[in-house]
Each structure stands twice: as structure tokens, then as C-alpha cells.
Computed example of a mutant assay.
Amino acid sequence: MSEPTRTRRLVSPSPEETHRLGVKLGQLLEPGDFVGLVGDLGAGKTHLVRGVAEGAGVASSEVASPTFAIVYPYDGRIPLYHADLYRLADYEELYATGFMDLPGEGRAMLVEWLDRIPQAAPRDFLRVTLRHEGEDARSLEVEAFGARSAALLDAWLG
């Protein structure tokens, strides 16, 4: 994997703020955007995903963890796929699911546990790494790989 084009770091003091950050990102997403999420259990990935889905116009009642289904499609302002790679062992297992055909279908993609199978990311994508910074606070390191993702990062976090 190449070096990121741009990087931003920030601290979210609460789950509500992490959700709000997700809403803002979701409002900016376009079909074809790919956002990979990295972080331990409880790091805030779900709060961010629910916010992104809300910002993309997906009803909150539709957002569920795709841990067992691997990928959930959502329809909102833009079509959105939400994937979870936690239970997959390697790239070959992911490939067998048909996942590699999805990015070309004109949907934005949110992929949790991207660090388990980093080859799942296209050349141009955002990687958001969330870490515990106390009871409620989380740090976010956002890395853009490619021109579109750099523009998305700039629009999202300045």
C-alpha cells in the first residue's frame, strides 16, 4: 500500500460527537467512495457508521452490524454498502464472497475491520482509525489515499 496523500488527526470527546462526525461524512459521500474503518472492539466504529448512514439518508432503523451477513446494502440519498470483515480469515475467503465485484456497482462503501484484509481497499480510499482515549473520548486518524479521498477528507475535516 502506498503512503497516504493526506492525514488528519482529531479527538472526539463523546459517542455523540463521533456520530456527528459520521453524519457530516455521510453528507459528503458520493457513489464510488470507499471508507475503511479500523479499531478495536468498542473503539467507536459503530457510532461513526450509524452517523455516516444517517448523513447518506439511510433510516437509522435499517443500520445493523453486518458481522454475519458480511455486507448489507442500504438505500438513501446515495446507495451505500456496509461491510464487516471481522469474521473473514483472508483475501481468498473475501474474494469467494463476491465482495470484490461490489465497488464497481455505483455505491459508496463503508468497510469495518479493513485492517484484517487491507487488500480489500481500492487504490483511492479513506482509512479511519479509531482508538480509545479514555472512557468516552476517541481519537480518529484519517488517511486519504488518492485524489478523490484527499478532496473528501478536506471537505470533511478541513
Rank of each mutant, 00 (worst) to 15 (best):
Val111Met: 11
Ala147Asp: 15
Val111His: 11
Glu135Arg: 00
Arg131Tyr: 10
Arg127Phe: 04
Ala121Leu: 14
Leu110Gln: 05
Pro118Thr: 00
Ala137Asp: 05
Arg138Tyr: 04
Asp136Ala: 13
Pro103Phe: 01
Trp113Ser: 11
Arg116Ile: 13
Leu153Cys: 09
Gly134Phe: 14
Gln119Phe: 13
Arg107Asp: 05
His132Cys: 07
Pro122Ser: 01
Ser149Cys: 13
Arg123His: 13
Gly146Ile: 09
Glu135Ile: 08
Asp124Trp: 07
Ala108Glu: 01
Arg131Pro: 15
Asp115Cys: 12
Glu112Trp: 02
Gly106Pro: 04
Gly146Lys: 00
Arg138Val: 01
Glu135Gly: 11
Gly134Val: 12
Glu141Gly: 06
Ala150Lys: 01
Trp113Ala: 13
Leu152Tyr: 04
Arg123Gly: 15
Leu110Gly: 03
Leu114Glu: 06
Asp115His: 06
Gly134Ser: 12
Ala108Pro: 12
Gly104Cys: 07
Val142Asn: 03
Glu105Leu: 15
Ala150Gln: 06
Ala120Asp: 10
Ala151Tyr: 03
Val111Gly: 12
Arg127Ile: 01
Thr129His: 09
Leu152Thr: 02
Leu140Trp: 03
Ile117Gln: 11
Gly146Met: 09
Phe125His: 08
Arg131Asn: 14
Ala120Cys: 14
Leu152Gln: 09
Arg148Val: 13
Met109Thr: 01
Leu114His: 01
Leu153Pro: 09
Phe125Ala: 15
Phe145Tyr: 13
Asp136Trp: 06
Pro122Asp: 06
Arg107His: 08
Glu133Gln: 14
Leu153Tyr: 03
Arg123Asn: 14
Gly104Asn: 01
Ala120Lys: 00
Arg148Met: 15
Leu126Asn: 09
Arg138Gly: 05
Pro118Ile: 01
Phe145Val: 07
Leu130His: 02
Arg123Tyr: 12
Arg131His: 13
Leu130Gly: 05
Leu140Pro: 09
Leu152Pro: 12
Arg138Met: 05
Ala147Ile: 09
Ala147Cys: 11
Arg116Gly: 12
Ala150Trp: 07
Thr129Arg: 07
Glu135Cys: 11
Asp101Glu: 14
Phe125Cys: 15
Arg127Lys: 11
Leu110His: 04
Val111Cys: 11
Arg131Lys: 11
Ala150Glu: 14
Glu133Leu: 12
Arg107Cys: 13
Ala120Tyr: 02
Ala120Thr: 01
Asp154Pro: 10
Ala137Ile: 01
Thr129Ala: 15
Asp115Leu: 10
Leu126Ser: 10
Glu141Ser: 13
Arg107Pro: 10
Gly146Pro: 06
Pro118Lys: 01
Leu114Lys: 00
Pro122Tyr: 00
Arg148Cys: 14
His132Lys: 02
Glu105Phe: 07
Glu143Cys: 10
Leu130Tyr: 02
His132Gly: 03
Asp136Glu: 14
Leu126Trp: 08
Phe145Glu: 14
Leu102Asp: 06
Ser139Glu: 14
Ala151Gly: 12
Glu105Gly: 06
Met109Glu: 06
Phe145Pro: 15
Thr129Ser: 15
Gly106Cys: 08
Leu114Pro: 07
Arg148Lys: 07
Leu130Asp: 04
Val142Tyr: 06
Pro103Asp: 03
Asp154Lys: 04
Ala108Leu: 14
Pro122Ile: 00
Val142Phe: 08
Glu105Thr: 05
Asp154Leu: 09
Thr129Trp: 07
Leu153Gln: 02
Leu130Asn: 03
Arg123Glu: 15
Val142Gln: 04
Gly106Asp: 06
Arg148Ile: 13
Val111Ile: 10
Val111Tyr: 08
Glu133Tyr: 04
Leu153Arg: 00
Ala137Thr: 00
